[in-house]
Design a protein around this nucleic acid. Structure first.
Lengths: 224, 224
DNA sequence: TTATAAAGTTAGACATATCTAACAAATATT
DNA sequence: AATATTTGTTAGATATGTCTAACTTTATAA
């Protein structure tokens, strides 16, 4: 039947999104990184990059790192926007926990219906951040992370606000749930173990909770 | 990436759904019908029927009409259930008009997440019918149409309740909107033109509205 | 009842998206 | 600098789902 998919196929959308998410400051991504992230072998990635390059969505030259074109970035941001709006909708309007929404949003982000996402946006009151604290790109693909610090970079004595988490896996989020850790929480750093960087923190009804460096690296806080 | 699609591919789901929707009393469907309905050429349909037959979802024998197996019917009903729950959700919880929801539901019906549809179902209060009056199959695939009559089979003097519409095209539903025709409305039949079966009816603030036979055939009513 | 039309099948081509095996280039290591 | 490792590409195979052209079977009509 060839269900209508708009301009890009499902597969193409997944590559664009991955390129967007993996791009750091420089905006470039290696074939190998992309391959590992998508769980798709490198030759397949190479051939898709040629295809997206032909469509002017990716800058591709043999053996050089990949970069989205302006148009590619716009398309990618539109998908991320749909993903994050959906996560917000699932949590705010349908009663899901923040640890349950990733896989569903991963599917709904491919729905072709501008109106559907505009309705979501309006019902949510035009949110700027998703349930994990990630910014929701606006319709022009613009978005800005707040000026967060990793909790792991903070020092004993500091009092910070949990603003975002960088790892939306169900397991990690369930761990946070089990410790009553959620966005907006005010956290005081009591001490840092020097040899393994483990932190002991205090918040709400938790007088002394121990958090591994691995966890602290994934918690973004506002120093305020 | 091979996005997880559960047991059946998107294409397979569309064939199952079409077989379910086209099956009349007898439950059988011709290759040709299916081909026209899906807008897919007959040879393609034949080959897919062999595939679904190998999976025990369709009874297929050369040159014989097609029929879903019990398992095929179960799978199809599950998709229709998702479609109709989604339509209801879009109308009741997101403020869409009944003429806007078909295409979106056509995409969301393929989402793989039992929890997502259970949440919808619960938020809607376990509805039995979709916004067009079609029954929503339960989790076992069971559903039953109310005992409706076509408006076109009714006689002058009768007073009936509009219970369902059979044609969910945006155009038809917009026509009904333009005449303030909606489910639940009480309609009195004033007269029937004998040569073209046109009906003149009365309801609400419409003292005398003329409806073509084509329209009346698509309106299902409860004789009370 | 034979001819014609409609419905259905077979065979083979094509696009998309994936893979493995083998080779080439760039990077890192000694 | 020479070698080894990692990264990336090329070539060719495979699965899915679609198509057209040609043929067969079933149904319809003369």
């Amino acid at each position: 039947m060839t269900t209508f998919r708009g301009v890009n196929s499902l597969a193409e959308e997944n590559y664009l999104k991955a390129l967007f998410n993996l791009a750091g400051e420089s905006g470039v991504v290696n074939v190998n990184e992309l391959s590992r992230h998508l769980n798709i072998k490198m030759p397949t990635v190479t051939s898709m990059m040629k295809k997206l390059s032909a469509k002017n969505l990716v800058h591709y030259e043999s053996y050089k790192p990949l970069k989205l074109t302006e148009e590619g970035e716009k398309r990618a941001a539109a998908i991320i926007r749909k993903h994050r709006l959906t996560e917000m909708f699932l949590v705010e309007k349908m009663g899901f926990g923040w640890e349950q929404v990733h896989d569903i949003a991963e599917q709904i982000e491919h729905i072709q219906s501008p109106l559907f996402f505009e309705k979501m946006d309006a019902l949510l009151g035009y949110p700027k951040f998703d349930p994990h604290g990630s910014p929701i790109p606006d319709k022009d693909g613009k978005m800005k992370w707040k000026e967060f610090h990793k909790l792991s970079d903070c020092l004993p004595g500091e009092e910070v606000i949990l603003g975002a988490v960088i790892n939306n896996s169900s397991e990690f989020l369930q761990f946070l749930n089990s410790r009553d850790l959620r966005l907006g929480l005010s956290i005081s750093i009591l001490s840092v173990e020097s040899f393994d960087k483990t932190m002991v923190v205090h918040y709400e009804n938790h007088p002394a909770e121990t958090l591994s460096h691995t966890v602290c690296e994934r918690l973004l806080v506002d120093k305020q």
